[in-house]
Amino acid sequence: MFTEIYVENASAVSSEEQILFVLQCQMGKGEAIAGANICVPFNSEFDMRIPIDEVEVVDRECVKIKVNCTDADELEFLLGLKLSGEILTIE
């Protein structure tokens, strides 16, 4: 089942232990769970899948989806996608 999310904000959270890419989202039907993938379409024939590492429930309709990044370059790439305001699907 596909889940639609509306991305309100994309941000970064860094500590000594980890670098996180965080999407604050409004949920459509379905749910976001760790282990699922966010689908980011680039065109009708090509998309990218971003694995979800953690989901934090903010309230009934809002969640923070967290993705562990291996380094600052990966984080910079994900932030460069400018996903704020986008409607994406989770598979």
Rank of each mutant, 00 (worst) to 15 (best):
L88S: 07
F46Y: 07
L78F: 01
I19Y: 06
E4L: 12
A12L: 07
G35I: 00
L20I: 08
F42I: 06
S84G: 00
C69G: 13
E74C: 06
N37M: 09
P51I: 01
K29S: 07
P51F: 10
K66N: 06
V63W: 13
I90V: 08
I87S: 12
C25D: 06
M48L: 15
F21N: 03
D53Q: 02
L78I: 12
N43M: 04
V22K: 06
A72E: 14
M1L: 08
T89M: 00
D73H: 10
E76L: 04
M1R: 09
V58K: 04
M27V: 04
P41N: 05
L88A: 07
T89D: 07
D53Y: 02
A10P: 02
A34H: 01
S15K: 09
L79A: 10
L78P: 10
R49Y: 15
L83V: 02
E17W: 02
E56S: 11
N43L: 01
K64R: 14
L78V: 15
L75Y: 13
E61F: 06
M48R: 13
G30N: 03
C25S: 11
T70R: 13
A10E: 00
M1Q: 13
K66I: 09
I33V: 03
G28D: 01
G30W: 01
C39L: 14
I52W: 15
K29V: 11
D71T: 04
L83Y: 01
V58L: 04
A12D: 08
M48I: 12
L81E: 02
E74L: 05
S44C: 04
P51H: 15
Q26P: 03
E76Q: 09
N43W: 00
F21V: 08
G80P: 01
G80M: 07
C25P: 09
K29H: 04
I90L: 14
L20D: 03
L23Y: 00
V13K: 11
V55E: 13
I38C: 05
F21S: 06
E56K: 15
L88P: 07
V57P: 01
V55P: 04
R49H: 12
S84Y: 00
I50A: 01
Q24G: 15
Y6S: 04
N68G: 08
F46A: 04
I90K: 14
R60E: 15
K66Y: 15
N68S: 13
E74T: 02
C39G: 03
I65P: 01
N68I: 14
V7M: 06
N43I: 05
R49C: 14
N43P: 03
S84A: 11
E16V: 09
S44E: 13
A32V: 05
C39V: 07
E31N: 14
E31M: 11
A36R: 02
V67S: 09
F46S: 08
N37T: 07
S15E: 06
I52D: 05
P51R: 11
E45T: 00
V22T: 14
F77W: 06
E17T: 11
G85K: 04
G80S: 12
K66A: 11
P51K: 12
V13F: 08
Q24C: 03
Q24T: 15
K64V: 03
L88D: 14
F2N: 15
L75N: 11
E16H: 10
V63S: 03
